[in-house]
Design a protein around this nucleic acid. Structure first.
Lengths: 193, 193
DNA sequence: GTCTATATTATGATAGAC
DNA sequence: GTCTATCATAATATAGAC
């Protein structure tokens, strides 16, 4: 017999759609993802996805804000949890752990690549600067170090998007190993979910 | 009176479409760009764009290969032109100069973000690894340095895509200054075309 | 080599029932 | 809170003329 559709409170439904949308947008990009794919991933109807957020664009913006929020949260707790290691090392690990949160990093990559879009651009800029300020002001990194840190983060996003960690190619694995600071096995495990 | 449409040899027409497509794909991404926008940018009809490359997907793949080719060419000439400065500095400058070649870097960013796509993914991986091998084997950078170099490159792509160089925000400008190695004015001039 | 016209499909969004 | 049905549009691709 069939499972009846779950009736959820609005807040939970929103969150479940956002989670599904993050994965789908992360895989296909903003324009490439369809509200129908997101609906299927969330286990509801296409119309309901659109109705809940008003439009695909609004949904994407919410996904972007949520993704930035996750990064902020991860970084803040890495800053607080002082275990003796230098703060940039703690931040780097926190960022890598986010790979497990499927789609967050990939969705961000797509958001950042759409700076030209009148609706999405401002959200991307604000999000990126928010993260920059966090690592500079709250973690206390010098501008140069903060910039390097973001650069390494963008490389991680890229090798993750390209799925180089699943390649057989030895050069790909060498590069991923460098990008993740040495622990390829862990990177793979996180990416596999 | 109207200018008559230029009749061009096949090779030149292909190149002019590729150039236009690079800009449009760079601004909107693969799925977000339409063959009609590309046609307008190239000054020809939509049908002719599709007919020349067979499909939008094929066109995008050609754009990707051309973009990677441009980077290879720029890096090879930077490696050859030994002016006494360390090679990674020459490479960095060569990469920055590519900003002037409108769309190349932005198109690449979009290509690299679509690793999941069955047709585009392999092209993106191949392109990225080609560049990695070039800076490692031909420029002679150690894997760690090659990785850092690519990371800085991805940061440049990102701030360019986000158009942080056109922001008023002082933090944005600080970050772009770091990303481009100090010369914000030059970065802006290159980006302005 | 290049265009106009059009077939075809896909997708975002809306209306209205339950 | 959620669905089904449907509208409207946009966009890729094809056919065929010049």
């Amino acid at each position: 017999m069939e499972t009846t559709r779950q009736r959820l409170p609005a807040a939970e439904r929103r969150e479940s759609i956002l989670a599904a949308a993050t994965v789908v947008f992360g895989e296909r990009g903003y324009a490439g993802a369809t509200t129908d794919q997101i609906a299927t991933a969330a286990g509801i109807s296409q119309a309901y996805v659109v109705r809940t957020f008003g439009s695909k664009e609004t949904l994407f913006v919410e996904v972007a804000r949520r993704a930035v929020g996750r990064i902020e949260a991860a970084f803040r707790s890495a800053i607080e949890a002082d275990d003796g290691r230098p703060v940039d090392q703690r931040l780097g690990q926190a960022y890598l752990e986010l790979i497990a949160d499927r789609g967050i990093l990939l969705a961000l990559l797509h958001i950042f690549s759409l700076g030209n879009d009148p609706a999405i651009g401002p959200v991307g800029r604000e999000g990126f600067l928010t993260i920059y300020r966090l690592v500079r002001d709250e973690a206390g990194l010098a501008p140069e170090d903060a910039s390097h840190f973001l650069a390494e983060g963008m490389l991680i996003n890229t090798v993750l998007a390209l799925q180089l960690h699943d390649c057989d190619d030895p050069d790909a694995l060498e590069l991923v190993t460098q990008a993740c600071g040495g622990d390829l096995v862990r990177f793979r495990a996180l990416a596999a979910g």
